[in-house]
């Protein structure tokens, strides 16, 4: 039996396939502007597809013209007709197309940037190198402070009040809407309107230093009742340690100075330099969406934070023993 050998794909073909795979992977997923789950993102995706469709049509026409002039009819063309064709197709038509696209794009912006009606849920987000401080309004007093994670009710507009405490950051949840810069000394606003439940990913979209790529966050869009229940749980003080190791962990947390930078409501720890850790055990991830939130990663984070996130301000606590690391991580893990 004769075996037909298929030629091996060249390196160029493999490279093209890999590039195509990477590009296509951007069309869906929790961080894709082309997989919208919010009113703003739907408009932006619509703009993208109109522009992509228009560009494809122009490309096809240009290729067809090239084939016509180079292969189908390579003889000399009528000078005046050619000149008119060049002016029409090369200058007038692009101007008209660009004008239409510009007006279509600009027409979307006022609605995307408009302030929401009074009474809309307002969430304050402050950008830091390289994490996010998130404050939810609290009817009964001080705002509820969380970090690196946002939860939103589906079907309601939400206004983010954005600022930065160090350098310029940019707040972007591609699946929900556009992005807005966070500028030191200024307050900016972004209104989003989530239309689908699910978990999405947000990111800092403005280079902000060594660990810029590690400045992300998760966004959970849930139904209103679930959101209210979650917020009530997050507004409570920390859960008291449930076992001996966790009790030891809390003691260590307070004795080794963690409380100078971090707050754990219900304890003496009231630092505001770093993220609030009152309910860190309930979060999806650690280090601004760097790692899955589990005991092992918590322990690694405390022991090797500078290696994991270059330039971070948190010092490594290398003087602690393995037992002490474990106690601390067990304590933080049970802060649900």
């Amino acid at each position: 039996m004769k075996v037909i050998e298929m030629p091996a794909a060249s390196d160029a073909v493999k490279a093209k396939l890999i590039c195509a795979g990477i590009l296509i992977s951007g069309c869906s997923g929790s961080q894709s502007a082309l997989s919208p789950a919010g009113a703003g993102a739907e408009q932006i995706a619509s703009l993208f597809w109109w522009m992509a469709g228009g560009a494809t049509i122009i490309w096809v026409i240009m290729i067809a013209l090239s084939i016509y002039t180079l292969h189908l009819n390579p003889d000399a063309h009528h000078r005046q007709k050619s000149a008119l064709f060049i002016i029409g197709g090369g200058a007038i038509a692009p101007t008209i197309i660009l004008t239409i696209l510009l007006i279509y794009g600009l027409n979307l912006l006022p609605a995307l940037l408009a302030r929401p009606p009074a009474g809309t849920l307002q969430i304050e987000v402050q950008g830091y190198q390289w994490w996010w401080r998130v404050r939810y309004p609290n009817q009964s007093g001080e705002p509820i402070e969380l970090a690196n994670e946002i939860r939103l009710p589906r079907g309601e507009p939400v206004e983010f009040i954005l600022s930065s405490k160090d350098v310029v950051h940019s707040f972007w949840i591609p699946s929900l809407g556009g992005k807005v810069d966070m500028i030191p000394g200024r307050t900016t606003h972004l209104t989003l309107h989530p239309t689908k439940t699910g978990r999405f990913r947000g990111a800092c979209a403005e280079y902000c230093g060594a660990s810029h790529a590690y400045m992300n966050f998760t966004v959970d869009v849930v139904e209103k009742a679930e959101y209210d229940e979650w917020l009530a749980q997050q507004s409570a003080d920390r859960l008291a340690p449930r076992n001996e190791a966790a009790e030891r962990g809390e003691e260590l947390f307070l004795q080794t100075g963690c409380g100078a930078c971090h707050t754990i409501r219900g304890t003496e720890a009231d630092g505001t330099i770093g993220p609030d850790l009152t309910h860190i055990g309930s979060r999806n991830s650690l280090g601004a969406d760097m790692f899955v939130n589990n005991r092992e990663n918590l322990q690694n984070w405390i022991a090797h934070v500078s290696a994991l996130k270059p330039g971070v301000k948190m010092p490594e606590f290398r003087a602690l023993s393995d037992d002490e690391y474990q106690s601390l991580s067990k304590y933080l893990e049970q802060l649900k």
């Binding site: 660009l98 004008t99 600009l106 006022p110």
Partner: peptide, 8 residues
Amino acid sequence: FVATVALF
């Protein structure tokens, strides 16, 4: 084109 922005 630049001036058009002001219209919107």
